[in-house]
Amino acid sequence: MIGTIRDRLNDLPTRQRWALAGVVLLGLLAVPQVSTNFFVMNVFIYAFIFIGLGQSWNVIGGYAGQFSLGHAVMFAVGGYTTAILFIRHGVTPYVGIFAGGFVAAAVGLFLGAATFRLRYHYFAMATLAAALIGKTVGFRWEYINGASGIEYPFAQLGTPWSMMFRDKLPYFYLIGVMALATTLVIYRMDRSKLGMYLRSIDMDQGLARNSGLNVFNYKMYAMGVSSYIAGVFGGLYAQYVLYIDPMSTLRVLRNIDIIIVPIIGGVGTVLGPVVGAFIFIPIREYTRTGLSGGYTGLGWVVVGVVIVLISIYRPGGVLNQYFGRWD
């Protein structure tokens, strides 16, 4: 049955695909009309954040094929930058999240310059080392309050330009729009020469070099874009929870959270992180809240089972298997 759905979708003319995407988008926008339940809103907002983070990882890990295990560092850098600019320097987060993106991109480019000569698992291990360094720094650096983290001043709740909202609806729309905008950028990249070059580097780096591509430069471009997106969504995350600390942003498992989304949905596809986020986040949130008390932590067992099942039956992710590079 799913095969038939895939064939029908693939046969749709471009205009009808856009119309279908529009219907899905309108459906999402209508969610708050159906329910403004705290839990439902929370699931959607986290799903939007993880669409952004999944897209971010997908650029470097999916398209360019560089398996980064350190993306939480860029996520945290963006979050901390946004929070510090706002709380200590009075810079509105509407500017701060993009500044956070640029600082995260700078950190990502530094990390890339140091690690891109490595390949395969050596690169992954180097980025994991960066994640561990980031975590240690996060817990010990006094400037960012170490393990205590940084709290937002609640006196500013609801004030203009603070991006601190009293209820979840504005977050739903704001972060939803950012997730959509990011997905559109990735869609553009997927169809551009840049996307073609990055995929060629993923497939055969040596052949790409012999085709005249400066592989190092293109990996750096990918790392810059990827880190920028992670930083922006780090800022949005900080604004949403109104608190940022190393435990929630820099713990090793956060790196895994980010990777799981495109792996479930489809690595190297435009819509993979969208599908992955809407599978992973509801499972995570429902199991996290539903399996509390003595069952705390069992949520990860459920996530693990889902990943094992997808690896066996849908290698490459849900969309890769069914839709190819459906765009």
């Binding site: 553009r188 990249m189 551009s192 020469k193 840049l194 073609m196 070059y197 995929r199 060629s200 497939m203 055969d204 052949l207 790409a208 085709s211 005249g212 591509l213 400066n214 471009y221 810059g224 874009v225 590079r325």
Partner: peptide
Amino acid sequence: FPELTVRENVLINQDHSGETMLTTLF
């Protein structure tokens, strides 16, 4: 490049001088 089309495989070999991230994106 196995997952690129025949046309894309040839086009990868175009002149890359002067290309930047933005020009390759847009």
